[in-house]
């Protein structure tokens, strides 16, 4: 049997914004959406070894070996020039992790952790790895009290969710928009599967948090906010709903011309949602 490997863009040992408590976070490379508002656009695609980044690297950490772009982390100074010049929103600095590699990371950091979160990119594009990893954690005596979470855009179809949910403790789900035309504009994909995922996760008790990105003039319209309120009410008025705000940090391309979301507007919308009966609306702790 071929054990699955994950293509990992980044690992964090300390995160207090990716689920309950402190979490080790794996950011997997590759996404099935292409949102112009993405604040990690370099996680969207897998490297195609075009080599455009190699001459740009000031420390010589990038080379081409047998037609493949190779990254030497020991001399990389994390200037991220390679990400800036990548024509396809990929990342030459990814690392391959086996399940055992991640288990070792978890052992090393166990005293500090409440759990692990797989994020991205879109985590579920590497579903087999997540199933293998979560299954291994759940059956490991030293690790089984860690909670296993996924941060997802919800595009994974229902039958596939059913293969991962038995070993998953919770999912943070992004809903980008309710109007489907708007959703297509913002993600390149339709939202039917996303909304179905929200219901499925809620019904199986695994919906930890819904997240909604407020983009001025796009997702903050009265209609969108009303649809959001109705959607959450149909699940449970106490469903945790986190309002995220569109910012320019990390964004590339056309969305840099879009206005950013400001605190007073976020507070106003949060109040509207609360007036509509939602009891668990969370606003950002920090505005950049």
């Amino acid at each position: 049997m071929n054990l699955p490997l994950a293509t990992v863009s980044k690992v964090l040992k300390f995160s207090c914004v990716d689920g309950p408590g402190n979490r080790l976070v794996l950011f997997l490379q590759g996404c099935n959406f292409a949102c112009p508002t993405c604040h990690n656009p370099h996680t969207m695609k897998l490297c195609n070894d075009c080599g455009d980044c190699v001459p740009e690297c000031p420390t010589g950490a990038l080379t081409i070996v047998q037609g493949k772009v190779v990254h030497d982390a020991s001399i990389c100074d994390q200037c991220d020039k390679c990400l800036d010049v990548c024509p396809i929103n990929a990342n030459p600095k990814v690392t391959q992790y086996s399940v055992d590699d991640v288990l070792v990371l978890l052992y090393q950091n166990k005293p500090f952790l409440n759990g692990i979160t797989i994020s991205g990119g879109e985590a579920t594009t590497q579903l087999k790895f997540i199933i293998a990893l979560f299954t291994a954690i759940k059956t490991d005596e030293k690790l089984k009290d860690l909670t296993c979470f996924i941060d997802s855009n919800g595009y994974l179809p229902e039958p596939a969710w059913k293969t991962i949910l038995p070993v998953t403790d919770g999912v943070m789900l992004d809903i980008k928009a309710f109007n489907n035309t708007l959703h297509r504009l913002l993600t390149t994909r339709s939202n039917e599967r996303v909304l179905a995922t929200a219901k499925l996760l809620f019904d199986s008790g695994k919906l930890h948090e819904l997240r909604y990105l407020l983009i001025p003039g796009r997702t903050d319209s009265d209609e969108e906010i009303e649809d959001l309120a109705n959607f959450v009410r149909a699940l449970d008025t106490d469903t945790p709903l986190r309002l995220n705000t569109f910012q320019h940090h990390g964004v590339k391309g056309e969305a840099l011309n879009w206005p950013t979301m400001k605190e007073p507007d976020v507070e106003r919308i949060a109040e509207e949602l609360r007036s509509a009966g939602l009891t668990n609306v969370v606003v950002p702790a920090v505005y950049i």
Partner: peptide
Amino acid sequence: LDETIENNPVALEQLVKGAFQL
């Protein structure tokens, strides 16, 4: 600590416990 910890005090508790365990 980053101010995002405000919404997640459990993360701080775990950090203290981890530090003391080490």
